[in-house]
Structure formats: structure tokens, C-alpha cells
Amino acid sequence: MKRVSFAEFGGPEVLRLVDAEEPHAGPGQVRIAVRAAGVNPVDWRIREGQFGPVDLPAGVGLDAAGVVDEVGEGVDGIAVGDAVFGEGSSTYAEFAVLRAWARMPEGLTFEEAAGYPSVVETALRILREVGVESGQTLLVNGASGGVGSAVLQIARERGITVIGMASAANQDYLRELGALATTYGEGWVERVRQLGSVDAALDLAGSGVLRELVELTGDARKVLTIADRGAEEAGVRFSGVAGSVPDALAEAARLISQGKLHIPVEKSYALADAASAHIDSQAGHTRGRRVILV
């Protein structure tokens, strides 16, 4: 089979489309014929070596959607031929093993489904960890990407007011998702204050604004980041440990089926163009998700 791999840490140029042995489903796992794989910032951060030792050469990708073609020992309720989306490893490939999955909601394409698993798990986790409640106001820095898109919609469903920060080109998009929108750049703190007081804040962009977010909330415990490695210096928590992915996938399926969650695919790429997908992901300013079609 074909899969995207890297044999050394580095920039997008280290990615190669190679021939590899097919993986097989172990106990508690399923294998899918991959139809689409989600592109996440964690993918290129692993490729750069930001998360420590990795056995090389290594595959790339966590999220995927496809058709089950192997069911591991102890797995119930799913069968060969079922369409699923979920999380596993080395998903930029023709076949991948998933450790968590859910049936694809009616009407969802493989391309769309591949964009949900990690971002919805992250959105649910950070909303829980930051402790924001119905009737309060949440500020989201980097609100137009995949995680931000999920946060805005889940928060709206929970009765939370969201102030979203994104580029000028994405202001209308944030408003479509129910957020009060404002831009980055000089004067942003005052622009936020004009929109209302802030009870909690999420940093999804890692753009060096943690101290200002603490100032706006008045409490470092009410600020959380998934992107700024300088969190500890600012007294802010860094959230990087995933919660229950099966529970997150079940919640994603519920919200999608009820029409309460939709994350658009901004751009799709061929498997051979994974490097381009990483270049675009690292450039930021995403509206929704990027996915690789297999």
C-alpha cells in the first residue's frame, strides 16, 4: 500500500509517499480502507520532532474516515463494510488502524467526516477544562480553524457567548457560527473590551497573547492554551492530553445528526501532496478543515 512517511525530523520536504506493509487490526481495533484523512497541527509538530522521540521512519496522521475492512478481536457493534470516522495512527495511507471510531452520520461525506475526530475531542476537552458555563462569555483566539469552529458551535449550543478572534477575511465566517467577531492586530484588547467582559479565554493560535488574555479575564486559571509552549511562564495551563475519544466521537455524531455542528472543508489534497497540506496548515488562517483524499 501507499502511505506518507518521514525518515528524519524536519520541514515538509521530509515527507515521502512510499510503499509500506499493510497494518492489521489488533484486539479492540478496526482497520479501514481510508477515504480521507484529517490534517491537524499535531501532525506537523510530530514531523518537526516537537513531541520527543519517535521511531523512524514514521507514518503521519491521526484522523481518518473510511470503510471497515478488518475487525479486531473483542470488537462488537461494527462490521466489515461499515462507514466510520475516528482516530488511529499513520492515517495518511491507503489503509489505517483505528483505536476509536463511530459510525458516520447520515449525509456526511468521507471528506467532511475526516475533519472531525481530533478537533471535536479537543474542543470538548478544553471547554470542560477552562470551566466556562452557560450565560458566561468566552474569548477564543484563533477561532476560525477546525478546533475554533467546533468550540464556537458547541459553546453556542450550551448557551455560552463567544467572542472570536480571527483574520479580517474570516470575520463573516465567525458571525455565521454565532460569535461576536473581531480581528487580531494592534488595539485588539480594546476591541475585545468593547464587545463585553470576558469570563474565560482559549488560545488556539499560539500567537503570544497569553498575558493579555489573563489581563482580560482577571484570572490565569480561566485561560487555557493548546498552542503556546510559553504557557507556564504566563501562569496559564497547557492542555495537551486527550480525553475519551470514543465519547467525543459519539457527541460529534449526535451534534452533526442534529444539525448543530458543521465544520467545512477549506481545502483537500491528494495523498502525494501531503507536504503542501502541512505548509498550508502551518501558515494558519484556516477556515474550517484541511483533509487529504485517498
Score class of each variant (00 low, 15 high):
Arg3Met: 12
Ser5Leu: 10
Ala7Cys: 07
Ala7Asn: 13
Ala7Met: 02
Glu8Trp: 07
Gly10Glu: 11
Val14Met: 06
Leu17Arg: 15
Glu22Lys: 13
Gly28Gln: 11
Val34Gln: 11
Ala37Cys: 03
Pro41Met: 01
Val42Leu: 13
Asp43Ser: 03
Phe51His: 12
Pro57Cys: 03
Val60Gln: 09
Asp63Leu: 00
Val67Glu: 10
Glu73Thr: 11
Val75Cys: 09
Val75Thr: 10
Asp76Gly: 14
Asp82Asn: 15
Ala83Val: 04
Ser89Lys: 15
Ser90His: 13
Tyr92Met: 11
Glu94Lys: 07
Val97Ile: 12
Val97Met: 12
Trp101Cys: 08
Pro105Ile: 01
Glu106Trp: 05
Gly107Asn: 02
Leu108Ala: 02
Thr109His: 03
Glu112Trp: 00
Gly115Gln: 04
Tyr116Pro: 03
Tyr116Arg: 10
Ser118Glu: 05
Leu124Tyr: 10
Ile126Thr: 14
Arg128Pro: 11
Glu129Ile: 09
Val130His: 07
Gly131Lys: 06
Gly131Tyr: 09
Ser134His: 06
Ser134Ala: 15
Thr137Ala: 01
Leu138Ile: 05
Leu138Arg: 13
Leu139His: 01
Asn141Glu: 03
Asn141Ile: 03
Gly142Val: 01
Ser144Val: 07
Ser144His: 04
Gly145Asn: 11
Gly146Cys: 03
Val147Thr: 07
Ser149His: 13
Ala150Cys: 11
Val151Ile: 15
Gln153Asn: 07
Ala155Asn: 05
Ala155Tyr: 08
Arg156Val: 05
Arg158Thr: 07
Arg158Gly: 08
Ala169His: 13
Arg175Ile: 05
Arg175Tyr: 14
Glu176Phe: 04
Leu177Cys: 08
Gly178Ser: 09
Tyr184Cys: 01
Trp188Pro: 00
Val189Cys: 04
Glu190Arg: 13
Arg193Thr: 10
Gly196Ile: 11
Val198Tyr: 02
Ala200Leu: 10
Ala201Pro: 02
Leu202Ile: 09
Gly206Leu: 01
Val209Pro: 00
Leu213Val: 02
Gly218Arg: 06
Lys222Gly: 00
Lys222Ser: 07
Ala231Met: 01
Ala234Asp: 05
Gly235Pro: 03
Gly240Tyr: 05
Gly243Met: 14
Gly243Thr: 06
Ser244Asn: 11
Asp247His: 08
Leu249Cys: 11
Glu251Ser: 15
Arg254His: 13
Leu255Tyr: 12
Ile256Glu: 03
Ile256Val: 15
Leu261Cys: 00
Ile263Gly: 04
Pro264Gln: 05
Glu266Pro: 08
Ser268Pro: 10
Ala274Thr: 08
Ser276Glu: 15
Ile279Thr: 04
Gln282Arg: 10
Ala283Asn: 07
His285Gly: 02
Thr286Ser: 10
Arg287Asn: 01
Arg290Gln: 06
Arg290Val: 01
Arg290Gly: 13
Ile292Ser: 06
